[in-house]
Protein backbone atom coordinates (compact mmCIF):
# COMPACT_ATOMS: atom_id res chain seq x y z
CA UNK A 1 0.00 0.00 0.00
CA UNK A 2 2.66 2.48 1.03
CA UNK A 3 4.76 1.35 -1.91
CA UNK A 4 2.05 2.25 -4.41
CA UNK A 5 1.49 5.51 -2.58
CA UNK A 6 5.15 6.45 -2.83
CA UNK A 7 5.31 5.45 -6.50
CA UNK A 8 2.43 7.69 -7.44
CA UNK A 9 4.05 10.44 -5.43
CA UNK A 10 7.29 9.88 -7.31
CA UNK A 11 5.43 9.99 -10.60
CA UNK A 12 3.80 13.24 -9.54
CA UNK A 13 7.12 14.68 -8.52
CA UNK A 14 8.77 13.75 -11.80
CA UNK A 15 5.88 15.20 -13.75
CA UNK A 16 6.09 18.46 -11.80
CA UNK A 17 9.86 18.55 -12.24
CA UNK A 18 9.51 17.99 -15.96
CA UNK A 19 7.01 20.83 -16.29
CA UNK A 20 9.25 23.11 -14.23
CA UNK A 21 12.25 22.34 -16.43
CA UNK A 22 10.44 22.42 -19.75
CA UNK A 23 10.52 26.18 -20.54
CA UNK A 24 14.25 26.38 -19.85
CA UNK A 25 14.90 23.21 -21.86
CA UNK A 26 12.99 24.60 -24.83
CA UNK A 27 14.98 27.83 -24.58
CA UNK A 28 18.25 25.94 -24.39
CA UNK A 29 17.49 23.83 -27.43
CA UNK A 30 15.94 26.55 -29.57
CA UNK A 31 18.32 29.39 -28.74
CA UNK A 32 21.55 27.69 -27.66
CA UNK A 33 22.15 24.17 -29.01
CA UNK A 34 20.31 24.51 -32.29
CA UNK A 35 22.03 27.78 -33.37
CA UNK A 36 25.43 26.33 -32.47
CA UNK A 37 24.77 23.24 -34.57
CA UNK A 38 23.36 25.43 -37.32
CA UNK A 39 26.39 27.74 -37.32
CA UNK A 40 28.48 24.66 -37.92
CA UNK A 41 26.18 23.39 -40.69
CA UNK A 42 25.94 26.75 -42.49
CA UNK A 43 29.71 27.09 -42.50
CA UNK A 44 29.78 24.31 -45.14
CA UNK A 45 27.30 26.07 -47.41
CA UNK A 46 27.08 28.98 -49.78
CA UNK A 47 24.34 31.56 -49.31
CA UNK A 48 22.69 33.08 -52.38
CA UNK A 49 21.35 36.53 -51.64
CA UNK A 50 18.74 36.50 -54.43
CA UNK A 51 17.19 33.12 -53.74
CA UNK A 52 17.95 33.07 -50.01
CA UNK A 53 19.14 29.47 -50.36
CA UNK A 54 22.06 27.71 -48.76
CA UNK A 55 23.79 25.18 -50.99
CA UNK A 56 26.36 22.69 -49.71
CA UNK A 57 29.89 23.57 -50.77
CA UNK A 58 32.03 21.53 -48.39
CA UNK A 59 35.13 23.21 -47.02
CA UNK A 60 35.12 26.08 -49.50
CA UNK A 61 34.46 28.78 -46.87
CA UNK A 62 37.36 27.52 -44.77
CA UNK A 63 39.52 27.54 -47.87
CA UNK A 64 38.59 31.17 -48.49
CA UNK A 65 39.31 31.96 -44.84
CA UNK A 66 42.84 30.58 -45.09
CA UNK A 67 43.55 33.03 -47.92
CA UNK A 68 41.73 36.02 -46.45
CA UNK A 69 44.24 38.73 -45.54
CA UNK A 70 41.58 40.78 -43.71
CA UNK A 71 40.77 37.79 -41.49
CA UNK A 72 44.41 37.50 -40.50
CA UNK A 73 44.65 41.24 -39.99
CA UNK A 74 41.59 41.19 -37.71
CA UNK A 75 42.95 38.23 -35.76
CA UNK A 76 46.26 40.05 -35.37
CA UNK A 77 44.53 43.22 -34.18
CA UNK A 78 42.33 41.23 -31.81
CA UNK A 79 45.38 39.50 -30.34
CA UNK A 80 47.13 42.86 -30.00
CA UNK A 81 44.07 44.28 -28.27
CA UNK A 82 44.08 41.32 -25.86
CA UNK A 83 47.79 41.81 -25.15
CA UNK A 84 47.26 45.47 -24.32
CA UNK A 85 44.09 45.05 -22.33
CA UNK A 86 44.28 41.90 -20.22
CA UNK A 87 47.61 42.39 -18.36
CA UNK A 88 46.77 46.01 -17.56
CA UNK A 89 43.26 45.17 -16.44
CA UNK A 90 44.47 42.34 -14.19
CA UNK A 91 47.23 44.42 -12.63
CA UNK A 92 44.92 47.39 -12.06
CA UNK A 93 42.14 45.15 -10.76
CA UNK A 94 44.49 43.63 -8.21
CA UNK A 95 45.94 47.01 -7.17
CA UNK A 96 42.50 48.53 -6.73
CA UNK A 97 41.38 45.50 -4.72
CA UNK A 98 44.42 45.87 -2.42
CA UNK A 99 43.66 49.56 -2.07
CA UNK A 100 40.07 49.07 -0.99
CA UNK A 101 40.50 45.78 0.89
CA UNK A 102 40.64 47.62 4.21
CA UNK A 103 37.01 48.09 5.25
CA UNK A 104 36.00 51.68 5.75
CA UNK A 105 33.90 54.49 4.41
CA UNK A 106 36.32 55.60 1.71
CA UNK A 107 36.79 51.99 0.55
CA UNK A 108 33.05 51.56 0.08
CA UNK A 109 32.75 54.85 -1.80
CA UNK A 110 35.67 54.02 -4.06
CA UNK A 111 34.31 50.54 -4.76
CA UNK A 112 30.93 51.96 -5.71
CA UNK A 113 32.51 54.55 -7.99
CA UNK A 114 34.83 52.04 -9.69
CA UNK A 115 31.83 49.79 -10.36
CA UNK A 116 29.75 52.54 -12.01
CA UNK A 117 31.23 51.73 -15.45
CA UNK A 118 30.26 48.07 -15.01
CA UNK A 119 26.59 49.05 -15.00
CA UNK A 120 27.00 51.73 -17.66
CA UNK A 121 26.25 50.47 -21.13
CA UNK A 122 29.23 49.95 -23.41
CA UNK A 123 27.65 52.22 -26.00
CA UNK A 124 27.56 55.12 -23.52
CA UNK A 125 31.09 54.35 -22.30
CA UNK A 126 32.30 54.34 -25.91
CA UNK A 127 30.51 57.57 -26.78
CA UNK A 128 31.59 59.54 -23.74
CA UNK A 129 35.23 58.44 -23.89
CA UNK A 130 35.16 58.85 -27.65
CA UNK A 131 34.18 62.47 -27.12
CA UNK A 132 36.77 62.97 -24.39
CA UNK A 133 39.46 61.52 -26.69
CA UNK A 134 38.15 63.46 -29.69
CA UNK A 135 41.19 64.93 -31.40
CA UNK A 136 39.54 68.33 -32.00
CA UNK A 137 37.02 68.94 -29.24
CA UNK A 138 38.00 66.34 -26.61
CA UNK A 139 38.90 67.42 -23.10
CA UNK A 140 41.85 64.99 -22.93
CA UNK A 141 43.64 67.04 -25.55
CA UNK A 142 42.49 70.13 -23.69
CA UNK A 143 44.23 68.92 -20.54
CA UNK A 144 47.34 67.85 -22.48
CA UNK A 145 47.59 71.27 -24.12
CA UNK A 146 47.35 73.06 -20.80
CA UNK A 147 50.44 71.07 -19.76
CA UNK A 148 52.16 72.11 -22.98
CA UNK A 149 51.84 68.69 -24.64
CA UNK A 150 50.76 68.84 -28.29
CA UNK A 151 47.28 67.52 -29.16
CA UNK A 152 47.18 63.85 -30.10
CA UNK A 153 45.26 62.13 -32.88
CA UNK A 154 43.96 59.34 -30.60
CA UNK A 155 41.21 57.51 -32.50
CA UNK A 156 42.35 59.07 -35.77
CA UNK A 157 45.93 57.88 -35.30
CA UNK A 158 46.50 54.34 -36.50
CA UNK A 159 49.03 53.64 -33.76
CA UNK A 160 46.94 55.10 -30.93
CA UNK A 161 43.44 53.95 -31.88
CA UNK A 162 43.68 50.38 -30.58
CA UNK A 163 45.30 51.36 -27.24
CA UNK A 164 42.65 54.05 -26.78
CA UNK A 165 39.88 51.48 -27.36
CA UNK A 166 41.63 49.15 -24.91
CA UNK A 167 41.75 51.92 -22.27
CA UNK A 168 38.03 52.52 -22.67
CA UNK A 169 37.19 48.84 -22.15
CA UNK A 170 39.63 48.61 -19.23
CA UNK A 171 37.85 51.56 -17.63
CA UNK A 172 34.56 49.73 -18.09
CA UNK A 173 35.68 46.24 -17.00
CA UNK A 174 38.28 46.82 -14.30
CA UNK A 175 35.61 47.09 -11.57
CA UNK A 176 34.53 43.49 -11.96
CA UNK A 177 38.13 42.25 -11.98
CA UNK A 178 38.64 44.25 -8.80
CA UNK A 179 35.59 42.62 -7.21
CA UNK A 180 36.88 39.13 -7.97
CA UNK A 181 40.30 40.00 -6.57
CA UNK A 182 38.69 41.53 -3.50
CA UNK A 183 36.75 38.32 -2.86
CA UNK A 184 39.99 36.37 -3.31
CA UNK A 185 41.87 38.64 -0.90
CA UNK A 186 39.20 38.40 1.77
CA UNK A 187 39.30 34.60 1.53
CA UNK A 188 42.98 34.48 2.58
CA UNK A 189 43.16 33.57 6.28
CA UNK A 190 44.68 36.36 8.36
CA UNK A 191 46.79 33.86 10.34
CA UNK A 192 49.06 33.34 7.30
CA UNK A 193 50.08 36.99 7.44
CA UNK A 194 50.55 36.95 11.20
CA UNK A 195 52.73 33.85 11.05
CA UNK A 196 54.85 35.33 8.28
CA UNK A 197 55.14 38.65 10.09
CA UNK A 198 56.41 36.86 13.20
CA UNK A 199 59.04 35.27 10.95
CA UNK A 200 60.05 38.81 10.01
CA UNK A 201 58.58 39.08 6.53
CA UNK A 202 58.28 42.58 5.09
CA UNK A 203 55.26 43.97 3.26
CA UNK A 204 56.64 43.12 -0.17
CA UNK A 205 57.49 39.59 0.95
CA UNK A 206 54.00 39.13 2.36
CA UNK A 207 52.57 40.20 -0.98
CA UNK A 208 55.01 38.18 -3.06
CA UNK A 209 54.89 34.93 -1.08
CA UNK A 210 51.41 34.88 0.45
CA UNK A 211 48.97 37.17 -1.36
CA UNK A 212 50.00 36.47 -4.97
CA UNK A 213 50.26 32.66 -4.78
CA UNK A 214 47.08 32.30 -2.73
CA UNK A 215 45.22 34.33 -5.34
CA UNK A 216 46.09 31.76 -7.99
CA UNK A 217 42.51 30.62 -8.52
CA UNK A 218 41.40 34.22 -8.84
CA UNK A 219 44.17 34.97 -11.35
CA UNK A 220 43.03 32.05 -13.49
CA UNK A 221 39.38 33.07 -13.32
CA UNK A 222 40.04 36.73 -14.13
CA UNK A 223 42.53 35.79 -16.85
CA UNK A 224 40.18 33.42 -18.65
CA UNK A 225 37.06 35.60 -18.42
CA UNK A 226 38.82 38.83 -19.39
CA UNK A 227 40.62 37.09 -22.26
CA UNK A 228 37.33 35.85 -23.69
CA UNK A 229 35.83 39.32 -23.30
CA UNK A 230 38.86 40.89 -25.02
CA UNK A 231 38.59 38.56 -28.01
CA UNK A 232 34.94 39.53 -28.42
CA UNK A 233 35.62 43.28 -28.55
CA UNK A 234 32.97 44.86 -30.75
CA UNK A 235 30.94 47.80 -29.46
CA UNK A 236 33.64 50.51 -29.19
CA UNK A 237 34.91 49.57 -32.64
CA UNK A 238 31.44 49.75 -34.17
CA UNK A 239 30.55 53.01 -32.41
CA UNK A 240 33.87 54.85 -32.63
CA UNK A 241 36.19 53.72 -35.40
CA UNK A 242 34.33 51.36 -37.71
CA UNK A 243 37.56 49.37 -38.03
CA UNK A 244 39.69 52.34 -39.11
CA UNK A 245 41.90 54.28 -39.40
CA UNK A 246 43.38 52.22 -42.24
CA UNK A 247 42.14 48.94 -40.70
CA UNK A 248 44.06 49.52 -37.46
CA UNK A 249 41.07 48.56 -35.32
CA UNK A 250 39.52 45.91 -37.55
CA UNK A 251 38.84 43.05 -35.12
CA UNK A 252 37.33 39.63 -35.60
CA UNK A 253 33.78 40.05 -34.25
CA UNK A 254 33.42 43.35 -36.05
CA UNK A 255 34.59 41.72 -39.28
CA UNK A 256 32.13 38.81 -38.90
CA UNK A 257 29.29 41.20 -38.08
CA UNK A 258 29.89 43.30 -41.16
CA UNK A 259 30.32 40.32 -43.46
CA UNK A 260 26.99 38.92 -42.31
CA UNK A 261 24.75 41.88 -41.72
CA UNK A 262 26.15 44.52 -44.06
CA UNK A 263 27.25 42.34 -46.99
CA UNK A 264 24.88 39.35 -46.53
CA UNK A 265 27.80 36.92 -46.67
CA UNK A 266 26.09 34.68 -44.11
CA UNK A 267 27.85 31.44 -44.96
CA UNK A 268 31.36 32.81 -44.95
CA UNK A 269 30.59 34.67 -41.71
CA UNK A 270 29.43 31.44 -40.04
CA UNK A 271 32.70 29.76 -41.01
CA UNK A 272 34.56 32.59 -39.31
CA UNK A 273 32.21 32.25 -36.31
CA UNK A 274 33.17 28.59 -36.03
CA UNK A 275 36.84 29.54 -36.18
CA UNK A 276 36.27 32.17 -33.48
CA UNK A 277 34.39 29.74 -31.21
CA UNK A 278 37.08 27.06 -31.54
CA UNK A 279 39.80 29.64 -31.00
CA UNK A 280 38.15 30.88 -27.78
CA UNK A 281 37.71 27.38 -26.40
CA UNK A 282 41.31 26.51 -27.31
CA UNK A 283 42.64 29.65 -25.62
CA UNK A 284 40.61 28.96 -22.46
CA UNK A 285 41.83 25.37 -22.26
CA UNK A 286 45.41 26.48 -22.91
CA UNK A 287 45.23 29.12 -20.17
CA UNK A 288 43.68 26.68 -17.71
CA UNK A 289 46.39 24.12 -18.48
CA UNK A 290 49.40 26.37 -18.12
CA UNK A 291 48.07 27.94 -14.94
CA UNK A 292 47.33 24.50 -13.51
CA UNK A 293 50.88 23.38 -14.34
CA UNK A 294 52.07 26.40 -12.39
CA UNK A 295 49.94 25.19 -9.50
CA UNK A 296 51.89 21.96 -9.18
CA UNK A 297 55.20 23.68 -8.48
Amino acid sequence: MTKIFSNSRDAQRYRAAFLLSLPALIGLILFHYWPIADTFRLSFTDYKVFTGEFTFTGLKNYDIALNDPILFLSLKNTALFFLIKVPVQMALGLCLALLIAKPGRDSTLLRTLILFPAVTSMVVASIVWGMMFHSDIGIVNGVLESFGIPAQGFLRDKHQALPVLASITIWKDVGLSMIFYLAGLLAIPGEYYEAARIDGAGRWQLFRHITLPLLNRTHVFVLVTSTIAAFKIFVPVEVLTGGGPSNATRVIVHYIFHLAFRFNRFSYATALSVILAILLIAISIFQLRITRDGDDD
Binding site: Y33, F266, L276, L280
Partner: peptide
Protein backbone atom coordinates in the same frame (compact mmCIF):
# COMPACT_ATOMS: atom_id res chain seq x y z
CA UNK B 1 25.38 20.21 -20.63
CA UNK B 2 23.67 23.44 -19.55
CA UNK B 3 26.92 24.96 -18.27
CA UNK B 4 28.60 24.04 -21.55
CA UNK B 5 26.55 26.77 -23.27
CA UNK B 6 28.69 29.29 -21.36
CA UNK B 7 31.78 28.25 -23.30
CA UNK B 8 30.35 29.30 -26.65
CA UNK B 9 30.49 33.02 -27.31
CA UNK B 10 27.03 34.28 -28.22
CA UNK B 11 28.65 36.26 -31.03
CA UNK B 12 29.31 32.92 -32.75
CA UNK B 13 25.64 32.02 -33.09
CA UNK B 14 24.14 35.35 -34.12
CA UNK B 15 23.56 34.36 -37.74
CA UNK B 16 21.47 31.19 -37.15
CA UNK B 17 19.62 33.03 -34.37
CA UNK B 18 18.76 35.80 -36.79
CA UNK B 19 17.62 33.27 -39.40
CA UNK B 20 15.57 31.44 -36.73
Amino acid sequence: VILATLTIAFEAKLIPLFLT
